[in-house]
């Protein structure tokens, strides 16, 4: 059984069918790229997979459990986490605090123990501090721990956002156009971060991009979307030579 499975999902905005009968299977530890030209419906698919939109038809299952109608935070708890196209950090908080917020499911103490500063508070806060710093180590960001998120350079902000998503301990990480607005150097750094994740975390990744080269370079499976419909699916090599894909990207 696939880790994430979207079966014939469609969504309609008024009269417009933005996504039509979309199917997707992502297996454990697989890196899948979802590509398509601007306006193809990539972000809409993404928003359905993360619970922001509810599909009008079809079902989405994560680890065999349906996520349709679930709130975004419930989906996170079930094991899918995401980043945003336009980076959304907690800007006025520090890098470490950003990570700690995502880590809070592993901190088991009540509001009362916060107020009374019971031993459980100290125990888990210490744990959080250590775990989150270690986490930053993986991404070589420990030196920024006390920097406000808004003061990070653009590439590092993206990195922090990805790290924050991983701190929720997902089974699948979904990245929404992570290379948007990046210069070649930052894109390169991003690709390094992704391979770092592949090495250190045993999770699947869904990558949405319109930058073909990025996706072709690292993805095992590629799904091509156009006008809300899947037009091709397969390995990088297969999709690269698919005539529909060439038509969509290069024109006839």
């Amino acid at each position: 059984m696939a880790l994430l499975e979207a079966n014939n999902i469609s969504i309609q905005f008024g009269g417009l069918k933005a996504v039509d009968n979309f199917n997707l299977q992502i297996n454990d530890k697989e890196l899948v790229g979802l590509i398509g030209p601007n306006g193809a419906g990539k972000t809409t698919v993404f928003n359905m997979l993360t619970g922001v939109y509810m599909p009008t038809e079809g079902d989405i299952a994560l680890d065999g459990r349906s996520i349709v109608g679930k709130k975004p935070y419930e989906i996170v708890k079930m094991g899918a986490s995401r980043t945003f196209q336009n980076i959304r950090l907690f800007k006025e908080l520090t890098v470490l605090e950003n990570i700690k917020i995502a880590y809070h499911h592993d901190l088991h103490y009540s509001t009362l123990s916060s107020i009374l500063r019971l031993p459980s508070f100290w125990k888990y806060e210490k744990l959080a501090e250590e775990a989150c710093l270690e986490f930053l180590d993986i991404f070589e960001m420990r030196e920024y721990a006390d920097t406000l998120a808004k003061n990070l350079p653009y590439g590092k902000q993206r990195k922090l956002e990805i790290a924050r998503a991983l701190a929720t301990k997902p089974k699948i990480l979904m990245l929404d156009e992570p290379a948007a607005g990046m210069n070649p150097q930052e894109t390169h750094e991003l690709m390094e971060t992704i391979s770092l994740i592949r090495k250190n975390f045993n999770i699947a990744i869904l990558l949405i991009e319109h930058d073909m080269s990025l996706v072709m370079g690292i993805c095992e499976k590629i799904v091509v979307l156009d006008y809300g419909k899947v037009i091709a699916q397969g390995t990088a090599e297969e999709t690269k030579n698919n005539k529909d894909v060439i038509r969509v990207y290069l024109g006839e």
């Binding site: 709130k71 996170v76 986490s81 995401r82 700690k100 917020i101 995502a102 916060s114």
Partner: peptide, 19 residues
């Protein structure tokens, strides 16, 4: 408190990290 602050900073992002 951190969860509360995250809502002030960005409610959508807070929900997306499980708050």
């Amino acid at each position: 408190g951190r969860a509360i602050l995250s809502i002030r900073e960005d409610e959508v992002a807070a929900e997306a990290v499980g708050v």
